[in-house]
Design a protein around this nucleic acid. Sequence first.
DNA 1: TCCACGACTATTGTTGACAATCATGTCGCC
DNA 2: GGCGACATGATTGTCAACAATAGTCGTGGA
Lengths: 213, 213
Amino acid sequence: MTRTDTITDDLRHDILNGAFPPGDRLVELQLTQRYDCGRATVRAALVELSSEGLVDREANRGATVRRISVAEAIQITEARGALESLIAAHAARNANAEERVALNRVVADMRKAVAGESNSTYAELNQQFHRRLREMSGHSVAAELVANLRDRAAHHQYRLAIMPGRAAHSVEQHAAIASAIENHDEPGAAAAMDAHLRSVIEVLRRWGDAGPT
Amino acid sequence: MTRTDTITDDLRHDILNGAFPPGDRLVELQLTQRYDCGRATVRAALVELSSEGLVDREANRGATVRRISVAEAIQITEARGALESLIAAHAARNANAEERVALNRVVADMRKAVAGESNSTYAELNQQFHRRLREMSGHSVAAELVANLRDRAAHHQYRLAIMPGRAAHSVEQHAAIASAIENHDEPGAAAAMDAHLRSVIEVLRRWGDAGPT
DNA sequence: TCCACGACTATTGTTGACAATCATGTCGCC
DNA sequence: GGCGACATGATTGTCAACAATAGTCGTGGA
């Protein structure tokens, strides 16, 4: 793994974890001393993250951490929903018995987490569920796009997790998806996933009406 | 527009038009003299195109024009189908009267082109149809992803167009989409688009079984 | 004859410096 | 006091040079 890739990962990580809040300027020279490397290396990282949609880059005016409006977060989630449904359908077709068992175990852990009896956070299990699904589907193209979209809207997802009572609803939706996959029900899995993401969008929309731009 | 952006567009154009066939090595020094610029500029373009999925870049081993297998072309088309269905649904909701008329005019032109009575090629009209749909939808996130996916599989789409009798089928599918949009039928538009892309996949799959890897 | 080892070449990874551009603040003028 | 031209500083765009790496070819020995 080359140096540039490392810096890219570090910077992406720092952006996603809030070290650089949305709107922050990413001055190349400052980043060079933060990550201890040349400007070209930082530059390459910025180009990469720019085409991932995490940073804005204007000619001769520098890069900033991209600000994602609620409206755009909704679009991102819609696109993600379309692709995750595809993934769910493929997972229902391709997954083997072992993988199905593992998926159900994640759902069980989710139930424990909601009841406060788990040492894993619900957010972690949620990520694990979707990651596992992507692997089961074997659909690398959709998987890559979804991973990207997930990062882009990460800041809004974070707010979602805080919402009281949200996790309980979410668990049952995940259970429905796992159940459809258990039964090799491709359209059912896609529909369940679609319903899940649609419910996320609904929350985003309500939050958007109440909250700031 | 900065120099790097220009070079990036030029290189992308050259790749899509076959000046650099799939698998070709993209040696930085050669590109500098072809496009008359420094290596850093070429490098930035390669990074950009790499994250668009058009070129492969291995550490210390250089860049090559990405080779897309038929299997991957199918995945790309599946993902594109999921997103285009979303776009079609949004177009059915948001398009105004004027836009609907323009869309139907494209379909009419397509019919003429199939009958050999048009000066525009069918491929051009096809692109126009989908581009117009993206604009009508107002869904910039999905639109961007679809444009990218389209480029990635461009080489295979080219072979599709040659297939005899394919255009005639395709026209009616486009007509069905336009009709659903005319009637503000969101699920209908999505379903018609899904059927359209599914038929493309079917052709790709048949071709893949017969042709080379 | 075949394999292991080592130097060589080609190409990429990285750095620092120079030129071009944009934003900011100052000065003079009205 | 307000407004516009101009100089200044900060930041990016581009380039050429150096260092590091992977692939290749040739050589020597078993």
